[in-house]
Structure formats: structure tokens, C-alpha cells
Design a protein around this nucleic acid. Structure first.
Lengths: 142, 142
DNA sequence: ACCCAACTTTGTAACGATTACAATTTTAAA
DNA sequence: TTTAAAATTGTAATCGTTACAAAGTTGGGT
């Protein structure tokens, strides 16, 4: 069974497709590295030379608003984006900055729910520390 | 039983006290609003007119490094700080931006631990949605 | 009390992520 | 084809944060 295409995913989430949007979603689906807007821009520039960084920001905002992607605030320097909207946790390495997926261990609740009088729409579980690579002193970027 | 003073807390965490550091820690302990550096600066300026915003940033960094305070990355706009370092979760309202404490429901582990090969030093549980006040259409700042 | 080195604080300038905005281009329906 | 709405683009502005060097403060040894 094939993975859903970027275009199909956009349609499923009610986002009108365009060359740029498809390319960005495609990058998110193919690269589960939780990239920043800048990383997405740099990666796509070669194939779409006219791409603007503003478009990346606008598009990310649109994706998030439509539930087609997640914005992570795990990194205090910059926003990161995740095309995998299923419930999972994230780990960020304080040394190399890389973000890894981890299984979600908390109680799983569908959609949004009330908690202490507040309407919860998103649940984020963030772990911060030193990744396995960096523990071995083997992290390339530091 | 009296609450620990700001000065005592600094000493306990190995932070050499100063007028500015005591004032900032005192503010954190007295105001559990998870303030931004700017909010701390604005609040303390009247009483310490020579205070510099750089000092607030430096001091917050020092507190966090020494475990005397937490930096929250729940808000994508700006860092927020918490003088309560006990294990608890946070909720941020997407409308008014206020951050509330919530009980921590996950598995409680002491200090740092290994998870999937990574050394976890901090655990953050963030909930995002609409706070009770804003749900009633009663939030002052929006 | 004085001196000096280490530490702290301060102000300014720089930096970088993000957004505002207006112009241009593209899309799609009539 | 025409035309209005939507999308994209580039530039400039904004704002949180950090770098840096100067000025101020502290505490120990004399």
C-alpha cells in the first residue's frame, strides 16, 4: 500500500494545492526531521528557484491551521514543523539541536477535550536532553 | 511554615545573590504567571530603575542553568519562565496567551533518565487551546 | 582602610526569526 | 477572453534575544 501523496493530503485537509504547497508538503512527508521554515526553504530552493521564504511561512501557517501539519515549540530558537500529525512525543538534543520522535506514553484522548475548565486542542510532550549520538561524542553538528 | 525566600532559594541552588537576582527570583516566586523576560523587566523597573533588560536575560539563563527556574517553550512568540520547578504541566491559551499550571499526569521519574537511547534531562507537557475565561468570551487581553 | 582581581551589571549594537505590506503573478469561473 | 479572487513574491519592518565592551561592585589579602 502506497503512502498518501502530498497532493492527496492537501486535498484531504481542505488545502487548495499549488506547486509550492505540494512541494512543501512533499518535503515534510519525505523528511521526518522536523525542519524549520528556513530548512524547508533552503531544501526546495534548487528545485523551485522562485520560491520565497514568505511563502514557506505562509504555507506552514496554512497547513497548521488546517491540521495538515504540526508546529513544534520544542526549540526555543525557531519553530519546527512536523508532517506527521499522529499522536507522538518529541525529543530535542540540547547539543546538536536535532529533534527525534518518541512514542506517546500519556493517556490518548480523541480530538479536543476539557481539562480544568480549559478546552485543550493540542497536546505536546517534549523531552530535552542529550541524544544518543552526542552522548557518544559523535554528533556532527554541535 | 513560611515560604522559602528568594535569597534562600538562590543560595540553595548555588547562585550568588545580588540585588537584581533576588528581585528577579522574588518576582518569579510571587508571580506564578510564567512571565516573559520583558514582563519581568517591566515589573521590576519601577523599583530598580537602573535594571537592564540584558541583566534579566542573563539572570534567567543563570537560573535555568542552575535549576532554580524553568524556561518554557510553550509560547512560540517568546520564552517564558517558571520559578516553580516541581513536576507539572502547562496550558497556554491560543487567544489570550496566558499560561496556566496543570497537574502532571504522566509517569513521574526522578532526575534524568535514558529513553530510546537518549538522555532525558527535562520533561515538558504542554497543552494548547482556549482557556476557561476566553471560552466565556471574557478574556481581557485577546 | 586600600588595592586588585574577579565578578556583575549595563547600554548599545547586532543578529535572526518572523511578519506586514504592496506589487506581481497565477488561477479558475463566467 | 475577461476578470476578480487567490497565491506568490520581495522588501522592509518588527521584535525577542545575544554579543560585546565599558562601567560598576564585591570580597580577600595586605
Amino acid at each position: 500500500m502506497n503512502r498518501e501523496s502530498a497532493n492527496e493530503r492537501l486535498v484531504r485537509y481542505g488545502v487548495k494545492p499549488s506547486v509550492q504547497r505540494i512541494a512543501i508538503m512533499d518535503y515534510l512527508l519525505a523528511n521526518r526531521t522536523h525542519p524549520t521554515a528556513d530548512e524547508v526553504y533552503s531544501a526546495l530552493c534548487p528545485s523551485i528557484p522562485t520560491l520565497s521564504k514568505t511563502t514557506v511561512y505562509n504555507t506552514m501557517k496554512l497547513f497548521v491551521e488546517n491540521g495538515a501539519a504540526l508546529m513544534l515549540t520544542i526549540d526555543d530558537k525557531t519553530a519546527r514543523f512536523d508532517g506527521d500529525t499522529s499522536l507522538h512525543a518529541h525529543f530535542i538534543c540540547k547539543q546538536c539541536g536535532k529533534v527525534h520522535d518518541l512514542p506517546f506514553t500519556g493517556r490518548k484522548r480523541a480530538g479536543s477535550f476539557q481539562l480544568d475548565g480549559h478546552l485543550v486542542e493540542e497536546v505536546h510532550h517534549y523531552y530535552k536532553g542529550v541524544c544518543s549520538q552526542c552522548q557518544e561524542g559523535a554528533c556532527p553538528s554541535s
